[in-house]
């Protein structure tokens, strides 16, 4: 009966090490392509400027002198956000009353992926 030959075990061990190293390098290559993509995708999908702008517009609209202009502009903010940014924008304000000298605006932005809520107070 042929005996199990245990010569050259170092070579076998090295073979194993090299193949596992190759295996891990393959995993690294596999993951590295996704990294740049997911990062950039996350950045471009997050509606940073949309939120910032609509927030500015809501605050600006709150201080329009004419009541009719204010109603129009605020309706248009809601309507255009829904139709062009695919975002539901809702807001309401409470003017200074009693001992509270500030205007408060409650804003909600939701485009299905990102939701943003804020209660703004005039300084």
């Amino acid at each position: 009966m042929a005996r199990l030959n245990d010569d050259a075990q170092w070579i076998v061990l090295m073979g194993f090490i090299v193949s596992f190293a190759l295996f891990f390098i393959a995993i690294l290559i596999n993951q590295s392509t996704i990294v740049g993509q997911t990062t950039a995708e996350a950045v471009s999908e997050f509606p940073k400027t949309d939120i910032r702008e609509v927030r500015g517009m809501i605050i600006q609209s709150e201080f329009l002198g004419d009541e009719n202009d204010k109603t129009n502009v605020q309706r248009e903010i809601r309507n255009l956000s829904l139709s062009r940014h695919n975002a539901v924008v809702e807001f309401s304000s409470s003017p200074p009353a009693g001992s509270d000298p500030y205007t408060h605006i409650e804003m909600h932005y939701n485009n299905g992926v990102t939701a943003y809520n804020e209660t703004w107070r005039s300084e």
């Binding site: 193949s19 295996f23 393959a26 290559i29 596999n30 996704i34 740049g36 993509q37 950039a40 471009s44």
Partner: peptide, 27 residues
């Protein structure tokens, strides 16, 4: 098994090779 796994990972990685750079320049 190691060969099969490596081949699988390599084939898989080419399938997601959709120019990660375009997203960065879009941004």
């Amino acid at each position: 098994l190691i060969l099969l796994l490596t081949a699988y990972i390599v084939v898989n990685s080419t399938s997601v090779y959709t120019m990660g750079d375009t997203h960065i320049s879009d941004m």
